[in-house]
Simulated scan of single mutants.
Amino acid sequence: MFIINLHYKVPLEEIDKHLPKHIEFLNVKYALENFIASGRKVPRTSGNILSKMKDKAAVEMIINKDPFRANNLADYALI
């Protein structure tokens, strides 16, 4: 299991432009049962995703496809 900790690198206006694609990405991963929870932090500086996957390399491959990462909008840390 991993906590995927995101930290936004750009203003929220830029994040919001990509938010629909990010939500679409999350929904696909929920359907595949890769992710079990996610949400924004308060204040809205970042977010977290909880993954039940056991293989760190597989998690890294998946998060590389997240629009926030693909567009260099957020840094990611796996815990």
Rank of each mutant, 00 (worst) to 15 (best):
K17C: 01
K56E: 14
R40Y: 01
M53F: 00
P20Q: 04
L19T: 14
D55G: 04
S38L: 01
Y30P: 12
I62K: 05
L50F: 13
I49P: 08
V28S: 11
H18Y: 11
H18S: 10
E33Y: 08
N5C: 02
A31V: 03
K29Y: 05
F68A: 02
P20Y: 03
D55V: 09
V28Q: 14
K29N: 15
K56T: 02
A70H: 05
K52G: 11
F68Y: 13
H18I: 08
V42T: 15
A70K: 08
K41Q: 10
P43D: 10
T45C: 11
S38Y: 02
H18E: 08
L12A: 09
K65G: 02
A74T: 10
Y30A: 12
E14N: 13
P20H: 06
K65L: 12
H18Q: 11
K56I: 08
K65Q: 15
M61I: 00
L12M: 15
A57D: 13
E14I: 07
P20R: 07
L19D: 04
K52N: 14
L78E: 03
M61D: 15
D75Q: 07
A74W: 01
R40C: 01
K9P: 05
P11Y: 03
M61C: 06
N34A: 05
V10W: 04
Y8I: 02
I62W: 01
D55N: 15
A70D: 12
F68M: 07
